[in-house]
Deep mutational scan, measured.
Amino acid sequence: EDPKKEILLAMLMVDKEKKGYVMASDLRSKLTSLGEKLTHKEVDDLFREADIEPNGKVKYDEFIHKITL
C-alpha cells in the first residue's frame, strides 16, 4: 500500500476530533503498531526529515508534503 496513504490513515485514526493535527507521540504509537509497522528508528528518521519535535504537533498536510518531496 502507498506509504503516504498509510500515514494519513494513521493520522486520521488518532485525530478523532478532526483538528488537522496530531501529537507526535500519538502518531509514533500508530505508525509502530499498524499496517507495515515502522521501527522507532524509522519514525525518528521521518520526524527528523519533516522537522517534527518528538513531543510536538504534527499537521497532516505539512507532514505529508515534507516526507514526500
Rank of each mutant, 00 (worst) to 15 (best):
T68H: 10
K18R: 11
D45N: 07
D61E: 14
N55F: 08
K5F: 12
L46R: 04
E6D: 12
K37V: 09
S29R: 14
E42H: 00
L8F: 05
K18C: 03
K37C: 12
K37W: 10
A10Y: 05
L9Y: 10
N55I: 02
L34N: 11
I67Y: 04
D15E: 12
I64V: 08
I7T: 13
K18N: 11
K18H: 08
K19W: 01
L12Y: 07
F63M: 06
E62A: 04
M11I: 05
D44V: 03
K4A: 13
V14H: 14
I7L: 15
K41M: 06
L34C: 11
K41R: 10
L34T: 11
R48A: 11
H65I: 00
S25C: 03
D15L: 13
D51T: 07
S25N: 11
M23I: 03
H65L: 00
L34W: 13
S29I: 09
M11F: 08
V58L: 07
K37I: 13
V14Q: 15
I67D: 12
E6Q: 13
L27A: 03
G20I: 00
K37H: 09
S33F: 05
E42S: 04
E6V: 02
D26T: 08
E62D: 09
K18I: 01
E6K: 11
L8A: 11
D26H: 07
S25A: 12
K19Q: 13
L8I: 05
E42P: 03
H65N: 08
G56Q: 12
H40T: 09
G56D: 13
I52E: 03
K19S: 15
K18Y: 04
T68Y: 14
Y21D: 09
V14N: 14
L34D: 12
V58T: 01
L34A: 11
Y21Q: 11
I7V: 12
E17C: 06
E49N: 01
V43F: 00
A10G: 11
E49W: 14
E17S: 09
D61K: 09
A10L: 03
L46W: 08
Y21K: 07
V58W: 07
M13A: 15
D26Q: 10
E62R: 01
K16V: 10
D45Y: 00
K4H: 11
L9H: 08
L27H: 00
K41D: 13
V22F: 02
G56A: 11
L38T: 07
P54Y: 07
D51L: 02
D61A: 09
